[in-house]
Computed example of a mutant assay.
Amino acid sequence: MALFGTIVNALCIIAGSLVGVFFTKIPERYKETVMHGISLAVILIGVQMALETESIIVVLLSLLTGAIIGEFVHLEEGLNRMGNWIGSKITTTNDNFSVAQGFITASLVFVIGALSVIGALDSGLRGDHEVLITKGVIDGFVALVLTTTLGFSVVLSVIPVVIYQGTIALLATYINQWIPESILNGLIGELTAVGGLLIMAIGLNLLKIVQIRVGNLLPAIVTVGVVYYIYLLF
Rank of each mutant, 00 (worst) to 15 (best):
Q101W: 03
Q101C: 01
G102Q: 06
G102A: 12
F103L: 15
F103N: 09
I104G: 04
T105I: 13
T105M: 05
T105G: 04
A106W: 11
S107P: 06
S107W: 10
S107C: 12
S107Q: 12
S107A: 15
S107E: 14
S107G: 09
L108W: 02
L108N: 08
L108Y: 12
L108K: 04
V109E: 01
V109P: 01
V109W: 01
V109L: 12
V109I: 15
F110M: 12
F110N: 08
F110Y: 14
V111A: 10
V111C: 15
V111K: 03
I112D: 00
I112C: 07
I112Q: 00
I112P: 02
G113Y: 05
G113P: 01
G113K: 02
G113F: 09
A114Q: 13
A114C: 09
A114T: 14
A114H: 05
L115S: 14
L115P: 00
L115R: 02
S116E: 03
S116A: 15
S116L: 06
V117N: 06
V117Y: 04
I118N: 00
I118M: 12
G119F: 08
G119W: 05
A120M: 11
L121N: 04
L121I: 13
L121T: 05
D122A: 06
D122M: 10
D122I: 00
S123G: 14
S123R: 09
G124N: 05
G124W: 05
G124D: 09
G124R: 04
G124I: 12
G124A: 08
L125F: 14
L125K: 15
L125R: 15
L125D: 00
R126G: 05
R126P: 00
R126N: 13
R126D: 11
G127A: 06
G127Q: 07
G127I: 08
G127K: 02
D128L: 07
D128N: 15
D128F: 04
D128W: 04
D128S: 07
E130W: 00
E130V: 06
E130Q: 07
V131P: 05
V131A: 14
V131F: 03
V131W: 04
L132R: 10
L132E: 13
I133A: 04
I133L: 07
I133S: 01
I133M: 13
T134N: 08
T134R: 09
T134V: 14
K135L: 08
K135V: 05
K135E: 08
G136K: 07
G136S: 06
V137Y: 05
V137C: 09
V137A: 14
I138Q: 10
I138Y: 13
I138K: 08
D139L: 11
D139C: 07
D139G: 02
D139M: 02
D139H: 00
G140Q: 07
G140P: 00
G140Y: 09
F141I: 14
F141W: 10
V142A: 12
V142E: 04
V142H: 02
V142D: 02
A143Q: 04
L144R: 01
V145A: 15
L146C: 11
L146P: 09
L146K: 09
L146I: 11
T147L: 05
T147G: 11
T147H: 10
T147C: 11
T147M: 09
T148F: 07
T148M: 15
T148G: 15
T148Y: 06
T149N: 13
T149H: 11
T149F: 04
L150S: 02
L150M: 10
